[in-house]
Design a protein around this nucleic acid. Structure first.
Lengths: 154, 154
DNA sequence: TAGAACCCTCGAGTGCACTTGAAGCAAGCG
DNA sequence: CGCTTGCTTCAAGTGCACTCGAGGGTTCTA
């Protein structure tokens, strides 16, 4: 639920697409996570999270007064989206490009949409291929299962 | 002779799962392809095909009198199946393991079935994840498209 | 005010799946 | 016969996405 203050002079590009997963450890307002908490939540390693930030795949991450990272729910949203993009097979470099566009603001909506439409098309293709693969697997599984029940007989 | 040729007069465990793609360049009987023909047909590089054979991912490949590889339609079948397995994300090492089992003959049908059933389950999971990803993509695409039509208003 | 547990940066290392290159043999054409 | 193109092996190199380690600062609990 990232519908934050879209007050008059602050037109933040609110992300309405968090697909119903407000099941984060802490509610907005108290959402300050250490890196190891985020690691536990996302399944990524702390080293990987630092590396994501370093290459520009994470937007600015808040820091404590002493320089330690403090992630929030918006960061978890973003990491969730990155996870989805990773599943599509999109290279990290392309995701970094997308993150750059996000950083540049609303002027890049068009290009972002194009990227996501290309990705959408690839996902569709991929699903079709996996269905194909599924058919092949099931055929072979049936074959092996049948052969096991009738070991030698013609 | 060890257990290698465990199909005396009984023809090979013919693969009935070629999922209706007998659209190979040459019909059975005249199917002798050079490595570059196979490369063109499969989209793999000649170097990759040699490497597949070297690591044990290809079953025995025939050779010409002078030692050059001559692939046949059964090899193309196998490469098609490998392609499908690769799409599932199965590591090469696991495919090599599977190829080993194939080489060992019918005694390994059970283990082969288990592997394929695990793979089937992973594919199902993967498809579900991709559907999820698709939803997220479509939501964001709609959002960007809407925002482009109504740049600043509201 | 200790001590343990956690965090920081920087730089080098790992594993996977190819990919490329070198040096030499083979096949087909004019 | 020579030439080009394609094949052979073996070994080293590449690109990606992390992954790890050293050396040192921070935070929490007792």
């Amino acid at each position: 639920m990232t519908v934050i203050d879209s007050t008059p002079a602050n037109p933040r590009p609110v992300d309405v697409c968090v697909t119903a997963s407000p099941d984060y450890p802490r509610p907005d307002g108290q959402d300050r996570y250490t890196i190891s908490e985020v690691a536990a939540f996302t399944g990524l390693r702390a080293h990987t999270l630092r590396w994501y930030e370093q290459i520009g795949l994470m937007p600015r991450v808040e820091r404590s007064h002493a320089g330690q990272r403090r992630f929030d729910n918006r960061d978890l949203d973003w990491l969730g989206f990155v996870r989805k993009l990773r599943l599509t097979g999109m290279p990290i470099a392309d995701m970094v490009r997308f993150a750059d566009l996000v950083r540049q603001g609303e002027a890049t909506f068009g290009e972002r949409r194009e990227i996501l439409e290309r990705t959408r098309h690839e996902v569709l293709t991929r699903i079709a291929e996996l269905r194909d693969t599924l058919d092949a697997l099931e055929c072979k599984i049936d074959f092996y299962a049948g052969a096991e029940r009738a070991p030698e007989g013609a």
